[in-house]
């Protein structure tokens, strides 16, 4: 997947024009995008480009957890922690969804097709005083969301993409899918979530990225 390294020179050059700089991260993956002109503007949030590709961004090495060692748990502010083995998880009712996804690095992908277990299904019968969730993952990644953004048919734990098992580089065996927020909230390699009374910032939210991340309000960074 041709990585294009753009180091110091272009970045210094772009500093003269903050807008241009914002469009050129220090290291470009060179994926192809097009402006929103040819996609309906009610589908593409401000500042985003539509891509046909599915770029891979990763904060760390790709884990390869064996399914027999995989589980998903809900912990924290619950009466009893819940845990599903892979077999138990896959026995839960599933949903097929077609959604648009929006990465904070400015690409959007329309009509992506997923299959997963609704977070509503996972939370069935769980009593909690927590109003926030901190999904956690293989590799140590975390992110934070209000629980109400994970319920009401808005979020899934997805195990298939485009009719195939989710590839490890895209978060397989399972990733969170929360399409109405920037895609860093859709944590890859998710293994569970801790429910909490307070909104504790996750891996990126502690270091510059927005605590909520609504793409329609361009909530990319602190203070946006």
């Amino acid at each position: 997947m041709g990585l294009t390294l753009v180091t110091g020179e272009p970045l210094r050059e772009s500093q003269q024009d903050p807008k241009k700089e914002d469009e050129m991260p220090p290291i470009s993956r060179g994926f192809r995008g097009r402006h929103r002109d040819d996609a309906s503007s009610d589908r593409v949030p401000p500042g985003q480009y539509v891509t046909e590709d599915f770029p891979v961004l990763s904060a760390g090495p790709t884990p390869h957890t064996r399914l027999e060692q995989w589980d998903f748990s809900i912990t924290g502010e619950v009466d009893n922690p819940h845990r599903w083995s892979w077999e138990e998880f896959r026995a839960l009712p599933t949903e097929a969804v077609t959604v648009d996804i929006h990465c904070v690095t400015k690409w959007s992908k329309l009509d992506s097709v997923w299959e997963g277990v609704s977070v509503d299904t996972l939370l069935e019968g769980i009593e909690t005083s927590g109003e926030y969730a901190l999904p956690f993952c293989d590799g140590g990644y975390t992110t934070n969301l209000p629980l109400e953004d994970l319920t009401g048919g808005k979020a899934w734990v997805a195990f298939a993409y485009d009719g195939e098992p989710l590839e490890p580089e895209h978060g397989g065996p399972a990733r969170l899918l929360v399409p109405h927020l920037y895609f860093w909230k859709s944590a890859k390699w998710v293994r569970g979530m801790r429910l909490a009374v307070t909104n504790e910032p996750g891996f990126w939210e502690t270091n510059g990225y927005h605590i909520y991340g609504d793409p329609w309000k361009e909530q990319r960074y602190w203070g946006d």
Partner: peptide, 11 residues
């Protein structure tokens, strides 16, 4: 090691 997610991660 350097990874590029939403930002840069040095490991």
């Amino acid at each position: 090691f350097l990874y590029r997610g939403a930002g840069l991660v040095f490991r």
